[in-house]
C-alpha cells in the first residue's frame, strides 16, 4: 500500500483542479502542468510499492525489479504532456496577442455565440 503516494496524488489533483478553475491564464497553465504530473504519478503507483525492489535495469540488480511497464508508459505520457503543454503556452500567447487579455473570464464576457461574427 502506498498511502503517501495516494495522498500526494490527491493533493496534486485537488490543487491542479483548483488552479484550472481559476480565470487567470497563468494559473490555468500551472494547473495543467500540475495535472500532467499528477496523472503521471498516478500511473507510477501502478507499479506497486517499490520497497525492496530495484530499478528495472537487468544485471545491476540483486533482487526483484519494479514493474517497468508503468515507467515506460509514463515516459510516453510525459513527452506527450510536454508537447501539449508547449502548444498550450503558444495558444495562450496568441490569445493574449489577439485579445489583449490574460483573463479567461474577460475573454468571453460579452459574447453571443448564437450569431456568428
Amino acid at each position: 500500500m502506498q498511502i503517501e503516494s495516494a495522498l500526494l496524488i490527491g493533493v496534486l489533483f485537488g490543487c491542479a483542479t483548483y488552479l484550472i478553475l481559476q480565470n487567470s491564464f497563468v494559473k490555468i497553465l500551472f494547473g495543467f502542468v500540475v495535472l500532467t504530473n499528477a496523472a503521471n504519478l498516478l500511473v507510477l503507483t501502478m507499479s506497486g510499492n517499490p520497497g525492496g525492489k530495484y530499478a528495472p535495469i537487468v544485471g545491476d540488480a540483486a533482487g526483484p525489479l519494479v514493474d517497468p511497464l508503468p515507467q515506460a508508459l509514463i515516459l510516453t505520457a510525459i513527452v506527450i504532456g510536454f508537447g501539449v503543454t508547449a502548444y498550450l503556452v503558444l495558444l495562450l500567447y496568441r490569445i493574449f496577442l489577439d485579445q489583449n487579455t490574460t483573463n479567461a473570464a474577460e475573454l468571453y464576457e460579452d459574447q453571443d455565440t448564437s450569431e456568428h461574427t
Binding site: 495543467f32 498516478l42 508508459l73
Partner: peptide, 26 residues
C-alpha cells in the same frame, strides 16, 4: 482562437482522465 481555448482545456482534462483510467485498468 478564443474558441480553441475551451476546446483545448476540456480535452486536456479528458486526456488526463483517460491516462488515469488506463493506469487504473492496468
Amino acid at each position: 482562437v478564443k474558441q480553441a481555448f475551451p476546446y483545448l482545456a476540456i480535452n486536456l482534462m479528458g486526456s488526463t482522465l483517460f491516462l488515469c483510467a488506463a493506469g487504473l485498468a492496468y
